[in-house]
Design a protein around this nucleic acid. Structure first.
Length: 785
RNA sequence: GGGUCCAUGGUCCAGUGGUUACGACGUCCGCUUGACGUGCGGAAGAUCAGGGGUUCGAAUCCCUUUGGGCCCACCA
């Protein structure tokens, strides 16, 4: 072998792997990606999702998602933009608290607030370290020098300052409303935090007696324990069976008081018996009907999830579940149950704890959103949605969303910056800018009650919904209120990348908050990624046993293989299925690239630097034409945040066109057999040129291998990641005969096989007329006589 | 009930009006071929969900049926 590249550290490896990645600059984390405010380039800013530190193993789909977000940043840099690519950690809220409770074996209530906060923080620091490590592992090229944390004093002061702005513009109000209450979490939650699951339930038919007669009426309910909260009975006005009952009274069994029969369209004659009991509160319809008919509420369930004295002696003190069982027993004993039917009932669950929510009147703060529907809809229509189809999810939600309850009865969150006058109860709101903790601090300076001049205050003990923090990330990362210059350059943000699962929450709340504060949409476009599923299209979960931890996978195949898989598998916005064999297949492609690079560098670099296009042979011009088309497709894919097209086009070009056809055609020339020096140089030039362009095009998807191979041929100071994508080069249509060339090569290979010849054996075959330009290379390739 | 998306070889996924439908994984046969057996060459395998329509021409546009996914809604 004339040239031996044994010096290269790459040469000793059989396959591209994790070990090699860690030896690159990208892998060692040596390269920094800070935003340069003074840059003259066009700005591309991103409002990246701060991952939530919940203590759960990071989902493979999420890691793939972040890999793709990184591809957006990297490709935009290579498109010549100055990229603001922030990285944050979302560290507030219930899941963290639950994790701390589990880890330290305490409960939030018993630990004491101060101590509990400390435990949460300790837990969070550990969790954050491991998540940051994963981001580094996958080559995430964000600005790690400036990680933001939603629980930092600075961020919380920011959240509070924006709360105060909303307060001043009268967008926040306090009100007692029947609210979604999660017994397990001990707090009110928003509609967006509810998920509905069909759960098996019993529909109990209870007999109510008609007043003034011995007739009875059967009423079906899934909530018999709320019998004592029943304030009316409802039928549909068109239901002939019950028409004459409307306006009459019935007696509530066991409790013995009388209520009226009312009519409403929402009663469905075909469900149950067609008669519905209206209780405070079994579901949303109850809430609406209590309001509509002005009924007096009677609350049977307290915030600990137990029945109170209103429920009566025999139920009081029992949990909801126990009470349900008990009351059915009692009713049965008295012969008041007509029948029980098993049904699947769509049950509202808290999406954090998965326990059924109860509707309990609670005094909470609300951010008014219901009067902004038109504005938000208008905005939703203008934002560039990628992919378009997910816009509808947002629009649907804007149409149904009601005011946002923002106060939470939890500890680890941003405190509500409000005190109340001890004397008259008037709220006191501090000036924005500082981080306030009303539960343990006095209001700042010489605070005075605006109404009674009182000087003593009691702090509100509640915290804000976590989404109040994360919904202003777009403002925080762009320096809103803190760095006018940066803000001007970067807001509204160029793109908001996020998952389809948090459109109702993060996307919606961000639009509500940011537009309220700035009058603008927070982003020009949103890029909505799909969910990662297992190879059968099922959700991955630990309980199902199909959960795959991405970290060992990355160690086994390398981050580039993982990233390439994620790019080549997921079309924008669609769910994608994980399969290990495909990740392994991606690794094979990288190994192919490594070997190609080895081959090309083994020829050395002598004397082709002055080669011009005109010096090239037809085969060279052909492959440059093919390459030119690849550049066009890849760059246009990157420009629209699509990685499926570039990755598949690149793999196809390298593996099916460049390596088997072009490289084989010019091997003889490259080795210098039977060609002139300048013909050899033309081949060497083209081989290196094509490889370089391929590396540039692959760089956003596979930052490690491209970095390593680029450094091999360009020296230690030149990084592939500091270059731009190449322009599309010109090519001549008359040499664009790829299909013919491939067909001819296959035909020759087939003939040799048929004749039992080795590929090196010579053969006598006519070269077709349209391939005459390529005959020198083709003859050498196939040893044609 | 309303909305929305999807349906392409065994599996997954490109292709959105134009000659024999891209590719990956898998399967089968063969091969030391001066980078790579994690390779190379070859092969089999698709009524592009069913039906109707528009068109010179439909996987692609329209209608409809069926089967799925997702979102929403006051099924007690």
């Amino acid at each position: 072998m004339a040239e031996d590249n044994a010096k290269s550290f790459l040469a000793s490896f059989k396959a591209w792997n994790r070990e090699l990645e860690l030896k690159t600059k990208e892998g060692s984390g040596a390269r920094k990606y800070a935003f340069d405010k003074s840059s003259k380039l066009d700005v591309f800013s991103m409002d990246t999702p701060p991952p939530y530190t919940s203590g759960k193993t990071w989902h493979l789909g999420a890691v793939a998602h972040y890999s793709q977000i990184d591809m957006i940043a990297r490709s935009q840099r290579m498109l010549g933009k100055e990229v603001l690519f922030p990285v944050g950690m979302d560290r507030n809220g219930i899941p963290v608290e639950r994790y701390a409770e589990k880890t330290y074996g305490v409960s939030m209530a018993s630990a004491g607030r101060e101590k509990f906060l400390f435990m949460c923080k300790t837990a969070l620091d550990d969790l954050e370290t491991s998540m940051i490590k994963i981001l580094h592992d996958i080559g995430y090229s964000a600005d790690f020098e400036n990680i933001y944390r939603t629980d930092s004093d600075e961020y919380r002061a920011f959240t509070q300052a924006t709360f105060i702005e909303h307060w001043k513009s009268k967008r926040i109000y306090k009100g007692k409303r029947p609210s979604n209450y999660c017994i397990d979490c001990g707090t009110t939650i928003a509609d967006a935090e509810i998920e509905y699951v069909d759960l098996p339930s019993k529909l109990v038919y209870i007999k109510f007696s008609l007043k003034g007669g011995d007739k009875s009426l059967s009423i079906a309910t899934t909530r018999p324990e709320l019998l004592g909260a029943c304030r009316a009975v409802m039928v549909n006005p068109t239901d002939e069976r019950y028409k004459d009952l409307i306006g009459k009274s019935v007696t509530v069994p066991l409790y013995g008081y009388d209520i009226r029969v009312i009519e409403d369209e929402s009663a469905k004659p075909e469900f149950g018996s067609g008669v519905v009991m209206i209780c405070s509160y079994g579901d949303y319809n109850d809430v609406l009907l209590f309001k509509k008919f002005g009924l007096d509420e009677k609350i049977l369930i307290d915030t600990s999830g137990k029945m109170n004295e209103n429920a009566g002696e025999s139920l009081s003190g029992l949990t909801v579940k126990e009470a349900r069982k008990k009351i059915v027993e009692i009713l049965k004993e008295k012969g008041l149950v007509e029948k029980e039917v098993n049904i699947n009932h769509r049950t509202p669950l808290c999406d954090r704890s998965k326990t059924p929510i109860e509707i309990i009147p609670m005094d909470e703060y609300f951010l008014r959103t219901s009067d902004k529907k038109e504005v938000l809809l208008e905005m939703a229509k203008k934002i560039d949605f990628i992919p378009e189809q997910h816009r509808q999810i947002l629009i649907n939600w804007i149409n149904v969303a009601s005011d946002w309850p923002i106060s939470r009865r939890r500890f680890y969150g941003t405190e509500i910056p409000i005190w109340y006058c001890k004397k008259c109860g008037e709220p006191y709101i501090p000036p924005p800018g500082k981080y306030y903790k009303p539960w343990k601090e006095s209001p700042p300076g010489s605070a005075e009650c605006a109404s009674c001049k009182g000087k003593e205050f009691i702090g509100d003990e509640r915290t804000l919904d976590t989404w109040m923090d994360s919904s202003v990330s777009a403002l925080y990362v762009t320096g809103y209120g803190r760095d006018e210059d940066l803000s001007k350059k970067t807001y509204p943000v160029s793109v908001r990348p996020q998952g389809v699962d948090i459109i109702r929450t993060w996307m919606y709340y961000s639009m509500v908050r940011c537009s309220e504060l700035t009058g603008m949409s927070p982003w020009k476009s949103v890029w909505v990624g799909g969910m990662g599923l297992d190879e059968h299209g099922e959700k991955m979960s630990k309980s199902k046993g199909n959960f795959v931890d991405p970290v060992p996978l990355i160690n086994k195949y390398g981050a580039d293989a993982f990233r390439f898989w994620s790019a080549s598998e997921a079309s924008v916005g669609s769910n994608f299925l994980y399969s290990e064999s495909k990740v392994a297949g991606s690794q094979k492609f990288l190994t192919k690239l490594l070997n190609l690079s080895r081959l090309i560098s083994s020829f050395g670099e002598q004397g082709y630097s002055d080669i011009k296009y005109d010096d090239l042979m037809p085969s060279d011009k052909w492959i440059i034409g093919e390459l030119s088309l690849l550049v066009k497709d890849a760059v246009s894919g990157y420009s629209s945040f699509n990685f499926l097209v570039p990755s598949n086009r690149i793999r196809n070009f390298v593996w099916s066109v460049f390596a088997p056809h072009y490289v084989e055609m010019v091997k003889a020339r490259a080795y210098g057999n039977g060609f002139s020096k300048s013909q050899r140089n033309a081949a060497l030039y083209t081989l290196n040129y094509v490889l370089n362009v391929v590396l540039l095009l692959t760089a956003p998807i596979c930052p490690f291998i491209t970095d390593a191979l680029w450094l091999e041929s360009h020296g230690k100071e030149d990084s592939v990641h500091s270059h731009r994508f190449p322009e599309q080069m010109k090519y001549e249509e008359k040499y664009m005969l790829g299909d013919k060339i491939i067909e001819f090569n296959s035909m020759v290979w087939g003939k040799k096989k048929e004749g039992g010849l080795s590929l090196r054996d010579n053969i006598s075959i006519d070269i077709p007329d349209d391939l005459k330009d390529f005959s020198d290379d083709l003859k050498a390739m196939h040893n044609i006589k």
